[in-house]
Simulated scan of single mutants.
Amino acid sequence: LFKPVSRCYTMKSGHRGALLETEDLQYVQEYRPENGDIKHLRILLYGPVGGGKSSFINSVSTVMRGRTTIPAAASATTSDTSFTRQEEETQRHFTRSSSMMMGLEEGSDSGVRADDIKLAMKGHVIEDHKFNPACPLSDEDPGYNQTPSPDDRVHVLVCVISANSSEIKEPILQKMSSIRETLISVSAGIPQMAIVTNIDTACGEIEKDLKNVYKSKHLRKKMKDFSSAVGIPMNCICPVKNYSDEIEIDDDVDSLILSALRLMIHFGDDFIEDM
């Protein structure tokens, strides 16, 4: 049911590929939750710093608008410190969805805490709340939502990681494991998936031609290793290339991003229906 059929066009070219891309774009643009109590499909992006969370949101905006845009602050350098210091609530004009970005760092006093992500998943974090890495959110803080509605909850949890990462450090894995335990024990089946970014710089064959993405043994091994490390199935992991140095839109880049977006909507829509 969840097989992202739209991925097929990333291996093709010509009229058929353009048709499928148009269908995916229209699907994402026109999606609306059928549940009347939910206005937005809320997607939480989290992962190690430098994974490409802000760049992915920028890339989504570029795809949807058909031109390059920079709606979310993104760092052009690699750093061990989270560039995104707050929850970025991006209400889109093009679809009834919103996203939050949270960077995981080593140590309990840096990056967003796993406990704060758990609260966000359950809808206890108000919009535009600025997290303090040194102090977790409590029910006495003004940023705490005492009575979250179904519309306040996170409907899809998406881990974002760079294909250039040689390995995920143990402290980060521990935080990610804690988040997964919350999904199982508390959060009543919130679907989770993953996005692997920077696939072009991680593999020379993909850099030559993005259509080689599903032919690359190197990338497949990376995805398998990541799947084993965090427990996310391979068919729930989407490789993407974020817009970075392009000044014009690229059909192959758009195809992968739209494929990931459609899968997010599928997962989130089914979760909302179960709610």
Rank of each mutant, 00 (worst) to 15 (best):
D225A: 15
G66T: 05
S75T: 06
L263T: 02
A202C: 10
A73Q: 07
H218E: 12
C203R: 00
D200C: 09
A134P: 02
I126W: 00
R32M: 09
M11H: 02
D225N: 14
M100F: 14
H218Q: 12
S185R: 05
I43Q: 02
L45A: 11
S187F: 08
R92M: 15
V5G: 10
Y27W: 08
E207Y: 12
D139W: 13
V186G: 05
V125T: 02
N145T: 06
V240T: 03
R262Q: 15
D80P: 04
L157T: 11
T147H: 11
L19M: 11
H40K: 08
S227G: 10
Y9N: 05
C159E: 14
K39F: 00
M275S: 11
L256W: 00
D24I: 02
D225V: 14
A260R: 00
L25N: 01
L41Y: 04
G123V: 05
K221T: 13
E89S: 14
G103E: 15
L104I: 04
D225Y: 08
S166K: 11
R96F: 03
D139E: 15
R32P: 02
A120M: 12
S227C: 10
I249S: 07
G111R: 02
I168R: 05
E87M: 13
I257T: 01
E207P: 00
S185L: 10
N35Q: 13
T77Y: 06
C135P: 01
L256K: 03
E87P: 04
S177W: 00
N35S: 13
S110M: 06
I232N: 14
N164C: 14
N198K: 14
K122S: 10
P48G: 09
H218R: 08
G143R: 05
T10C: 09
D141A: 13
H129L: 06
I195L: 14
D139K: 14
D152V: 05
T77W: 06
I249N: 04
K3F: 10
D274V: 09
D209P: 05
P233Y: 05
P239E: 09
E167G: 04
G66D: 01
M102Q: 10
I179D: 00
G143L: 05
M64G: 02
D245W: 04
Q91P: 00
A120H: 03
L19T: 06
S82K: 03
Y27G: 09
H266K: 15
R113D: 12
E246F: 03
M223T: 05
A120Y: 01
E248T: 09
P71C: 11
D200I: 03
T68N: 03
R16W: 10
V213L: 01
S82I: 10
K208R: 12
T84F: 03
L261V: 13
F2V: 12
E167C: 07
P191H: 10
A260P: 07
I172Q: 03
T22P: 01
D128M: 07
E21R: 13
I190V: 15
E34Y: 04
F94Q: 02
A260Y: 02
S227M: 08
F56H: 03
E34W: 04
S187C: 15
E248N: 14
F83A: 15
I184M: 07
D80W: 05
A194P: 04
Q192M: 14
V240A: 07
G17L: 06
I161A: 14
A73K: 02
S162H: 11
S82A: 15
D151E: 06
H266Q: 15
D250H: 07
V60D: 01
L41K: 03
G66Y: 01
A229E: 13
S216A: 08
I199G: 00
Y144A: 11
Q91K: 11
F131I: 04
